[in-house]
Write a protein that binds this DNA or RNA. Sequence first.
DNA 1: ACGACTGAGTTGCTTGACGCAACCTTGTGT
DNA 2: ACACAAGGTTGCGTCAAGCAACTCAGTCGT
Lengths: 162, 162
Amino acid sequence: MLRNDYPDQVCSIARSLEVIGERWTLLIVRDVMNGRRRFDELQKGLGVARNVLSTRLQRLIEEDILERRAYQQGPERYEYFLTEKGLDLWPALVALLHWGDRHSPSPEGPPMLIVHKGCGGAVSDRGICESCGKLLHARDARPVPGPGLERADGKANAITAR
Amino acid sequence: MLRNDYPDQVCSIARSLEVIGERWTLLIVRDVMNGRRRFDELQKGLGVARNVLSTRLQRLIEEDILERRAYQQGPERYEYFLTEKGLDLWPALVALLHWGDRHSPSPEGPPMLIVHKGCGGAVSDRGICESCGKLLHARDARPVPGPGLERADGKANAITAR
DNA sequence: ACGACTGAGTTGCTTGACGCAACCTTGTGT
DNA sequence: ACACAAGGTTGCGTCAAGCAACTCAGTCGT
């Protein structure tokens, strides 16, 4: 995105997109939600330019979507965690995931599935467990690799467990 | 967004964002969903550059999210409508709307509300009617201006009825 | 008859965000 | 002493976005 503001828009969707509508931002949130917490890990996983990742992380911290915590002193090294505000993006991510699965399906099936931690049931596009019917939140669910997750290089994505 | 592809990403969220993650795209979808169907109407409402609107509409048509229909001959004039694929973005838009309302609230209250056409109940962040409990889709709901929709120039947004 | 207006774009120029590679800093391993 | 690791920052070139002006076909006002 060129500029991240939409002047004259009084809509909450527009205000949301001012923050999370920038290129890479929502994918960074997704990765952090899936347990990728460190700079290099995010950079390699996404293939995003390092300077861009750096500015995105700063913006996400300013907006109180991410939090940076040092995990060692010496040379200080940091990890990024989602705040409550960040975790609340989960329903939107789930909706986008299902929209992609439904309308641009890969022949092998979806590359990632979301399951309810409690009962193992699949999670619907509305973030509801299809097995037990509960309305779920970010912490109630985890991603599992789906049938479409076959990579040419043979490496599996490292975001399976949590 | 500069380029609209995220190479090496096998995730459906990334694939969704390749299409609808570009600047303005989701706001165009929102406006068409709210009954804005013509080029100039969209351009004035959004304040987007005309060339950018033009390329976005073409892309959305290619991706089968919008459909262009002539509403008069003579000089041919067109209207844009959402396809089923486009209408299916509704849950994602609802989720973003609620996220914005919850985490960056305007002092006056939300500028736009979504209500269930059937019973008039408010629609939750998961697209569920809070009054009757039904799971809703795009056609079951309509936007109504909320308490936050006071504009300095006195003009109300023209997307009240449908 | 002539000019202004409308809807739906297209063209050209300028700005600025993004991608890429190189560099920096603090500390550890060999 | 040299390389390596993590977490960035800096500089440069390219390409998308913003802006204004222009086009084109038809209609309206005087």
